[in-house]
């Protein structure tokens, strides 16, 4: 099965809601960032330490969430196509909070900024966090441009929480791997 059609060879693509837009459109940038984040999570999942087998399933759940986020970003709000998408519930962000709380319970309190470093998987988690923040910034601008708070507000909540999750995850992985946080020494 060939995956290419060639219909995007001139720099345009179709949104899920049918509109033809430039591949440089802000909406495409936004779901492109989410796609990049998802790929980075795949790399992260491939390097998590064996002492934390639960992380694989956790990250796969997040990757699935990101597909839903991408679908919302690829759809013009209020279009009929939006009615076909799975609703973004607050439960997904709440699950991240549960994960954050669980990991934080085992971590020493932070006394300053830490360098994004440590175990390989922790380093990937930091990279993923920065991509997540970029995606979040892009969605903020998209929301402002299109004056559509809904349904992208749920996307923003999720990305904000996911960034926090990834920060805590990097420290959690370092702790499990026996790598100490490196405090920033200004």
């Amino acid at each position: 099965m060939k995956i290419y059609t060639g219909s995007g060879d001139r720099g345009k693509t179709s949104l899920f809601s049918g509109e033809r837009v430039s591949k440089g459109d802000l909406r495409i940038e936004a779901y492109g960032d989410v796609d990049e984040l998802n790929a980075m999570l795949g790399a992260l999942a491939a390097t998590t330490p064996p002492e934390a087998p639960e992380l694989g399933g956790e990250i796969r759940r997040i990757q699935s969430d990101l597909f839903h986020l991408g679908a919302w970003l690829a759809t013009t709000p209020d279009s009929p196509s939006a009615g076909m998408l799975k609703k973004l519930s607050e439960d997904a962000a709440r699950l991240l909070e549960v994960d954050i709380d669980r990991m934080e319970n085992g971590l020493p309190a932070l006394t300053g900024f830490i360098l994004p470093a440590g175990h390989r998987a922790a380093a990937w988690a930091h990279v993923a966090r920065t991509i997540c923040r970029r995606a979040e910034r892009r969605v903020v601008v998209l929301t402002e441009r299109e004056n559509h708070a809904e349904p992208l507000s749920a996307v923003l909540v999720y990305l904000n929480r996911l960034s926090d999750y990834l920060f805590v995850l990097s420290r959690h992985i370092n702790r499990i791997a026996g790598v100490e946080d490196i405090l920033w020494n200004p």
Binding site: K2, Y4, T5, G6, S7, R10, K12, S14, S17, G18, E19, R20
Partner: peptide
């Protein structure tokens, strides 16, 4: 897919602002 590709490019040229839904 050849039809989808050719039709899409023609629509881009002739019908700016059109919406396109495809099944390959």
């Amino acid at each position: 897919r050849e039809m989808i590709r050719d039709a899409t490019l023609i629509i881009d040229d002739r019908f700016s602002g059109a919406r396109i839904f495809t099944e390959i």
